[in-house]
Design a protein around this nucleic acid. Structure first.
Lengths: 217, 217
DNA sequence: CAATCATTGTGAAATTGATAACAAATGATT
DNA sequence: AATCATTTGTTATCAATTTCACAATGATTG
């Protein structure tokens, strides 16, 4: 009934940072934390932290701050970290392997349950405990296992094709590590994580700084 | 004298997307492209595309659009993709290896020239052609080789330490793949690429969608 | 060659996000 | 019990970004 007002993207992207800080604080047996302290650690202004947290049902206590435990639980709920979710990786190259073995996913409740590759040498092998299957099984398996999250780390030429197969199988969220922008229906979320884009931005910064420095050197 | 007005961050982050689209169009032997078409492919409004491109020296032609070749060249210049730049990876784990071998960097003019790790078994080995050196050599080597770009893929506990060493050696841009927010001086750009953050955002989407779907199922 | 069409560049308006400011709440202190 | 310092939630303000609207421009057409 009361649509829980959608969280704006910038806020949503900061929530995982706060979550990380809270988990860390918990390990140090802290109990309460102020927006000022969260802000210091996350490099965000305290006001901004409070604004972000205002989107959550959890409330802070004036004079005290936020209960770290409650807030962390609340974030786990909001970010959907509690229910463990299964995901699939398409492309068992270096990047695919690295992601499959990335320890951070488990902490986020993500479990990679299967990988796909078209290389016959790889099919049948395993990445850790994760079996590698041929790509013509994608749709079927994704559907049968009710997987909703697909990660694409193939060469860019096949990215769209792989995305189509995943969606055909019922995937609703796609994490695309290739430089192509894959096209998806309205109801599917795609996050393009083109790594060379990141390097271009850094590259621009280093370049533009050189210009400035040349004046002074 | 005339400071070439700094490009706002949101615009800067879209430029690599446009660049990718232009390169793609070039391969299809297209010659001119309109802001509307770029926008369609990049999922950005045409006005916004024009505003972004207005930060570049390159101009479009009314009635025709932008010369794809000129604009691509201009972007290569602006993003510093022409001049090859050397970079360093700290942390020769799975992710570090995957990045070191990632083919996309070369296209962006980035060359990984050396990796560092504290594991004595890894030191002395190579990732492709890239030698792995002990971390106590970071500052020295970075300084001697005048490296400006550092990529951190160590466990999160050591991230800050590694960043400090890189900066001590003269690095001006740091790409941090650990979940920690590293602190850096004003003149150093840091890009935090916490992968588990990405998955949390997707995870949130899948969760929030479930709520909606449950109403209809 | 005039009229039309597609498309850019840009100033103004609207929206969105961030910061500042402050009343209300809470525990600590005197 | 009263006061003080701390810290939240919220409203108002400010800044950045995006969208809107349209005049200006150059190609195309009859």
């Amino acid at each position: 009934m009361t649509t829980p007002k959608a969280i704006p993207k910038p806020s949503l992207q900061r929530l995982p940072i706060y979550y990380r800080i809270l988990k860390n604080a918990l390990e140090h047996h802290e109990e309460f934390i102020s927006s000022a302290e969260i802000g210091r650690r996350a490099k965000v202004s305290p006001q901004n932290v409070r604004k972000d947290l205002a989107f959550l049902p959890e409330q802070g206590q004036a004079g005290i701050g936020y209960s770290i435990l409650s807030l962390a639980n609340c974030l786990e709920d909001t970010l959907g970290l509690l229910k463990s979710k299964d995901a699939v990786i398409v492309g068992a190259g270096n990047l695919g392997k690295a992601l499959a073995l990335y320890p951070g996913f488990e902490k986020s409740g993500i479990q990679i349950v299967v990988a796909f590759d078209n290389d016959p040498d790889k099919v049948g092998e395993k990445i850790g405990d994760i079996p590698i299957m041929p790509i013509d099984k994608i749709s079927n398996l994704v559907r049968r296992m009710k997987l909703k999250i697909g990660i694409i780390t193939t060469p860019e030429e096949t990215a769209q094709e792989m995305a189509d197969l995943l969606i055909q199988g019922g995937c609703k969220a796609i994490w695309n590590f290739t430089p192509t922008m894959v096209k998806v229906p309205e109801d599917v979320m795609v996050r393009n994580e083109d790594l060379s884009m990141g390097i271009m931005v850094l590259s621009h910064y280093v370049e533009s700084m050189k210009v400035i420095n040349e004046k002074f050197e």
